[in-house]
Computed example of a mutant assay.
Amino acid sequence: MTQVKGKKVYLGTNTKMYKGVADTASYLEELCRLTGDLSREALELFVIPSFTALESARRCAPRELVRLGGQNMGWAGEGPYTGEISPKMLLEVGADIAELGHSERRHVLGETDEMVNRKVLCAAEYGLTALLCIGETAEEKARGLADEVLRTQLKAGLYGLGAGGAERLWVAYEPVWAIGEHGVPATKEYAEARHDTIRRTLTELYGEQAGQAVPLLYGGSVNPDNAVGLIRMENIDGLFIGRSAWDARKFNAIIRDVLAAADG
Protein backbone atom coordinates (compact mmCIF):
# COMPACT_ATOMS: atom_id res chain seq x y z
CA MET A 1 0.00 0.00 0.00
CA THR A 2 1.21 3.51 -0.70
CA GLN A 3 0.85 6.83 1.03
CA VAL A 4 -2.15 8.89 -0.06
CA LYS A 5 -1.00 11.73 -2.28
CA GLY A 6 -1.47 15.19 -0.86
CA LYS A 7 -1.64 13.94 2.73
CA LYS A 8 0.18 16.10 5.29
CA VAL A 9 3.45 14.58 6.45
CA TYR A 10 4.57 14.87 10.09
CA LEU A 11 8.33 15.01 10.61
CA GLY A 12 10.08 15.76 13.84
CA THR A 13 12.79 14.92 16.32
CA ASN A 14 13.40 14.72 20.05
CA THR A 15 16.94 15.84 20.93
CA LYS A 16 16.80 14.04 24.29
CA MET A 17 19.57 15.19 26.67
CA TYR A 18 22.08 16.18 24.01
CA LYS A 19 21.63 19.82 22.92
CA GLY A 20 21.83 22.73 25.35
CA VAL A 21 20.53 26.26 24.84
CA ALA A 22 23.18 27.48 22.37
CA ASP A 23 23.28 24.28 20.31
CA THR A 24 19.50 24.12 20.11
CA ALA A 25 19.24 27.73 18.94
CA SER A 26 21.92 27.23 16.29
CA TYR A 27 20.27 24.02 15.11
CA LEU A 28 16.81 25.57 14.82
CA GLU A 29 18.03 28.68 13.07
CA GLU A 30 19.74 26.55 10.44
CA LEU A 31 16.77 24.20 10.12
CA CYS A 32 14.38 27.12 9.59
CA ARG A 33 16.69 28.64 6.99
CA LEU A 34 17.06 25.38 5.10
CA THR A 35 13.36 24.46 5.11
CA GLY A 36 11.86 27.95 4.85
CA ASP A 37 10.90 27.43 1.20
CA LEU A 38 8.82 24.32 1.93
CA SER A 39 5.06 24.75 2.16
CA ARG A 40 3.71 23.91 5.60
CA GLU A 41 0.44 22.87 3.96
CA ALA A 42 2.14 19.55 3.19
CA LEU A 43 4.54 19.45 6.15
CA GLU A 44 4.13 19.54 9.92
CA LEU A 45 7.66 20.06 11.20
CA PHE A 46 8.35 19.80 14.93
CA VAL A 47 11.29 19.70 17.31
CA ILE A 48 11.27 18.63 20.95
CA PRO A 49 14.35 20.04 22.69
CA SER A 50 15.40 20.04 26.34
CA PHE A 51 13.23 22.04 28.76
CA THR A 52 15.98 24.56 29.41
CA ALA A 53 16.26 25.36 25.69
CA LEU A 54 12.56 25.83 24.97
CA GLU A 55 12.21 29.55 25.63
CA SER A 56 15.17 30.55 23.46
CA ALA A 57 14.14 27.98 20.86
CA ARG A 58 10.79 29.69 20.45
CA ARG A 59 12.49 33.04 19.92
CA CYS A 60 14.61 31.76 17.04
CA ALA A 61 12.08 29.40 15.43
CA PRO A 62 8.83 30.96 14.17
CA ARG A 63 5.78 28.86 15.03
CA GLU A 64 4.65 28.92 11.41
CA LEU A 65 7.83 27.05 10.47
CA VAL A 66 8.44 24.73 13.43
CA ARG A 67 6.24 23.53 16.28
CA LEU A 68 7.98 22.93 19.59
CA GLY A 69 7.26 20.46 22.34
CA GLY A 70 8.35 19.30 25.78
CA GLN A 71 9.97 15.90 26.24
CA ASN A 72 7.69 15.16 29.19
CA MET A 73 5.02 16.87 31.27
CA GLY A 74 3.51 16.59 34.71
CA TRP A 75 -0.13 15.59 35.18
CA ALA A 76 -1.31 18.81 36.84
CA GLY A 77 -1.50 22.46 35.91
CA GLU A 78 0.34 23.30 39.12
CA GLY A 79 0.96 21.78 42.53
CA PRO A 80 3.51 20.31 44.95
CA TYR A 81 5.36 18.22 42.36
CA THR A 82 9.04 19.06 42.80
CA GLY A 83 10.98 18.82 39.55
CA GLU A 84 7.95 18.48 37.27
CA ILE A 85 7.05 20.72 34.33
CA SER A 86 3.39 21.69 34.05
CA PRO A 87 1.37 22.23 30.87
CA LYS A 88 1.04 25.89 31.80
CA MET A 89 4.83 26.15 31.90
CA LEU A 90 5.12 24.55 28.46
CA LEU A 91 2.58 26.94 27.01
CA GLU A 92 4.29 29.91 28.65
CA VAL A 93 7.56 29.26 26.79
CA GLY A 94 5.88 28.66 23.43
CA ALA A 95 5.57 24.88 23.28
CA ASP A 96 2.32 23.33 22.14
CA ILE A 97 3.25 19.62 22.04
CA ALA A 98 3.80 17.31 25.00
CA GLU A 99 5.70 14.10 24.29
CA LEU A 100 4.30 11.47 26.65
CA GLY A 101 5.10 7.84 27.39
CA HIS A 102 8.44 7.62 25.59
CA SER A 103 10.01 4.20 26.10
CA GLU A 104 12.88 5.70 28.10
CA ARG A 105 10.34 7.21 30.48
CA ARG A 106 8.51 3.89 30.75
CA HIS A 107 11.38 1.39 30.86
CA VAL A 108 14.22 3.41 32.38
CA LEU A 109 12.33 5.77 34.70
CA GLY A 110 9.40 3.54 35.58
CA GLU A 111 6.38 5.41 34.22
CA THR A 112 3.22 3.32 34.14
CA ASP A 113 0.28 3.37 31.75
CA GLU A 114 -1.78 5.02 34.49
CA MET A 115 0.76 7.84 34.87
CA VAL A 116 0.89 8.35 31.11
CA ASN A 117 -2.91 8.45 30.98
CA ARG A 118 -3.06 11.19 33.62
CA LYS A 119 -0.61 13.22 31.56
CA VAL A 120 -2.57 12.70 28.32
CA LEU A 121 -5.76 13.92 29.99
CA CYS A 122 -3.95 16.92 31.44
CA ALA A 123 -2.48 17.83 28.06
CA ALA A 124 -5.95 17.75 26.55
CA GLU A 125 -7.33 19.89 29.38
CA TYR A 126 -4.81 22.64 28.60
CA GLY A 127 -5.06 22.44 24.82
CA LEU A 128 -1.68 20.87 24.16
CA THR A 129 -1.11 18.30 21.44
CA ALA A 130 -0.33 15.00 23.16
CA LEU A 131 2.28 12.95 21.31
CA LEU A 132 1.66 9.54 22.83
CA CYS A 133 4.55 7.10 22.39
CA ILE A 134 3.88 3.37 22.46
CA GLY A 135 5.89 0.29 21.57
CA GLU A 136 6.76 -3.29 22.46
CA THR A 137 10.03 -4.64 23.86
CA ALA A 138 12.17 -7.20 22.06
CA GLU A 139 10.89 -9.93 24.39
CA GLU A 140 7.26 -9.01 23.73
CA LYS A 141 7.95 -9.02 20.00
CA ALA A 142 9.60 -12.44 20.17
CA ARG A 143 6.57 -13.85 21.99
CA GLY A 144 4.16 -12.52 19.39
CA LEU A 145 2.63 -10.00 21.80
CA ALA A 146 3.33 -6.77 19.91
CA ASP A 147 -0.26 -6.05 18.86
CA GLU A 148 -1.64 -6.87 22.31
CA VAL A 149 0.92 -4.55 23.92
CA LEU A 150 0.09 -1.71 21.54
CA ARG A 151 -3.65 -2.08 22.05
CA THR A 152 -3.20 -2.14 25.84
CA GLN A 153 -0.94 0.91 25.87
CA LEU A 154 -3.37 2.79 23.62
CA LYS A 155 -6.50 1.90 25.56
CA ALA A 156 -4.85 2.57 28.91
CA GLY A 157 -3.13 5.75 27.80
CA LEU A 158 -6.26 7.20 26.20
CA TYR A 159 -8.74 6.10 28.87
CA GLY A 160 -11.21 8.90 29.49
CA LEU A 161 -10.04 10.98 26.52
CA GLY A 162 -13.07 11.93 24.46
CA ALA A 163 -13.29 12.64 20.76
CA GLY A 164 -12.58 16.32 21.40
CA GLY A 165 -9.25 15.49 23.00
CA ALA A 166 -8.44 13.08 20.18
CA GLU A 167 -8.49 16.01 17.77
CA ARG A 168 -5.16 17.09 19.32
CA LEU A 169 -3.67 13.60 19.58
CA TRP A 170 -0.67 12.22 17.72
CA VAL A 171 0.54 8.64 18.23
CA ALA A 172 4.16 7.59 17.72
CA TYR A 173 4.89 3.89 17.34
CA GLU A 174 8.41 3.39 18.69
CA PRO A 175 9.37 -0.25 19.20
CA VAL A 176 11.70 -0.32 22.18
CA TRP A 177 14.16 -2.61 20.37
CA ALA A 178 14.50 -0.10 17.51
CA ILE A 179 15.37 2.95 19.61
CA GLY A 180 18.79 4.25 20.53
CA GLU A 181 22.33 4.11 19.26
CA HIS A 182 22.27 0.34 18.82
CA GLY A 183 18.64 0.06 17.75
CA VAL A 184 17.60 -1.98 14.73
CA PRO A 185 14.93 -0.27 12.61
CA ALA A 186 11.72 -2.11 11.92
CA THR A 187 11.13 -3.08 8.31
CA LYS A 188 8.56 -0.96 6.55
CA GLU A 189 6.25 -3.97 6.37
CA TYR A 190 6.50 -4.65 10.10
CA ALA A 191 5.97 -0.99 10.93
CA GLU A 192 2.95 -0.81 8.62
CA ALA A 193 1.39 -3.89 10.23
CA ARG A 194 1.72 -2.35 13.69
CA HIS A 195 0.38 0.98 12.45
CA ASP A 196 -2.61 -0.88 11.02
CA THR A 197 -3.28 -2.31 14.48
CA ILE A 198 -3.00 1.15 16.00
CA ARG A 199 -5.35 2.62 13.38
CA ARG A 200 -7.96 -0.07 13.92
CA THR A 201 -7.78 0.43 17.69
CA LEU A 202 -8.26 4.18 17.33
CA THR A 203 -11.30 3.68 15.11
CA GLU A 204 -12.73 1.34 17.75
CA LEU A 205 -12.25 4.04 20.37
CA TYR A 206 -13.33 7.10 18.39
CA GLY A 207 -15.20 5.95 15.31
CA GLU A 208 -14.06 5.78 11.72
CA GLN A 209 -13.73 9.50 10.98
CA ALA A 210 -11.99 10.55 14.18
CA GLY A 211 -9.85 7.42 14.34
CA GLN A 212 -8.61 7.91 10.81
CA ALA A 213 -7.77 11.55 11.51
CA VAL A 214 -5.17 10.86 14.24
CA PRO A 215 -1.64 11.18 12.77
CA LEU A 216 0.46 8.05 13.23
CA LEU A 217 4.24 8.43 13.27
CA TYR A 218 6.93 5.77 13.16
CA GLY A 219 10.05 6.25 15.28
CA GLY A 220 12.97 3.92 15.77
CA SER A 221 16.30 4.24 13.95
CA VAL A 222 14.81 6.20 11.07
CA ASN A 223 17.61 7.18 8.69
CA PRO A 224 18.18 8.45 5.14
CA ASP A 225 18.07 4.88 3.81
CA ASN A 226 14.70 3.81 5.21
CA ALA A 227 12.73 7.06 5.56
CA VAL A 228 11.26 7.04 2.05
CA GLY A 229 10.14 3.42 2.23
CA LEU A 230 8.46 4.00 5.58
CA ILE A 231 6.55 7.11 4.53
CA ARG A 232 5.12 5.31 1.51
CA MET A 233 3.20 2.97 3.79
CA GLU A 234 -0.54 3.62 3.95
CA ASN A 235 -0.86 4.03 7.71
CA ILE A 236 2.40 5.88 8.36
CA ASP A 237 1.65 9.61 8.36
CA GLY A 238 5.02 10.77 9.60
CA LEU A 239 8.39 9.96 11.10
CA PHE A 240 9.74 10.69 14.57
CA ILE A 241 13.47 10.75 13.91
CA GLY A 242 16.37 10.46 16.33
CA ARG A 243 20.04 11.14 15.76
CA SER A 244 19.69 11.19 11.95
CA ALA A 245 17.83 14.50 12.38
CA TRP A 246 20.18 16.16 14.88
CA ASP A 247 22.20 17.76 12.09
CA ALA A 248 20.01 20.35 10.36
CA ARG A 249 21.47 19.72 6.91
CA LYS A 250 20.93 15.97 7.15
CA PHE A 251 17.42 16.48 8.49
CA ASN A 252 16.64 18.87 5.64
CA ALA A 253 17.74 16.22 3.13
CA ILE A 254 15.48 13.61 4.76
CA ILE A 255 12.56 16.05 4.82
CA ARG A 256 12.88 16.77 1.11
CA ASP A 257 13.23 13.11 0.17
CA VAL A 258 10.20 12.17 2.26
CA LEU A 259 8.03 14.97 0.87
CA ALA A 260 8.94 13.99 -2.67
CA ALA A 261 8.08 10.36 -1.96
CA ALA A 262 4.77 11.22 -0.28
CA ASP A 263 3.75 13.36 -3.24
CA GLY A 264 5.06 11.08 -5.96
Rank of each mutant, 00 (worst) to 15 (best):
R40H: 11
I231Y: 09
I241M: 04
G157E: 00
G77D: 06
M1Q: 13
P224N: 08
G219Y: 10
T2D: 07
E204C: 02
V108F: 09
A227Q: 05
F51E: 05
V120I: 07
A95K: 10
E104A: 10
K7V: 11
R63L: 12
A172T: 14
K8N: 00
L121F: 08
A124T: 08
D225C: 02
L158T: 03
A124I: 14
K7I: 13
A186Q: 01
E181T: 15
N226Y: 04
A61V: 10
S50P: 00
Q212F: 07
L259E: 06
T15N: 10
V116Y: 07
E114L: 14
A172E: 04
F46L: 13
K250G: 12
F51G: 02
S221D: 09
I97C: 02
L145A: 10
L31S: 01
I97T: 05
A178L: 09
T129A: 09
L109H: 15
T13V: 15
R243S: 15
M1L: 13
R40C: 14
Q212E: 09
G144M: 11
M115A: 15
Y18T: 15
N72E: 15
R143S: 13
T13W: 11
L54S: 08
V214R: 07
A156L: 02
A61T: 12
V21W: 03
N223H: 02
L239G: 05
K16D: 01
L216Q: 10
G20D: 10
G211W: 11
R168M: 07
R168H: 12
L131C: 07
N14P: 02
G219E: 03
Q71I: 15
D237A: 06
L65P: 06
R194M: 09
G183C: 13
R194V: 13
N252A: 15
T112P: 00
E55R: 15
Y190I: 05
V21F: 06
A245K: 05
G36F: 08
E181R: 12
A124S: 13
A98W: 01
E208H: 11
A260Y: 03
L205W: 11
V184N: 02
A248M: 03
L38W: 14
E189C: 00
V4Y: 05
F240A: 04
T2W: 11
I198A: 06
K141I: 03
E234Q: 11
T187I: 05
A146W: 05
E92V: 03
G264P: 05
D113P: 04
R143H: 14
R200W: 09
V228A: 10
K250M: 04
R118E: 12
R63V: 13
D237R: 05
H102M: 05
H107T: 08
D113A: 11
R256G: 02
L31Q: 07
G207V: 07
D113E: 04
T187H: 02
Y206I: 10
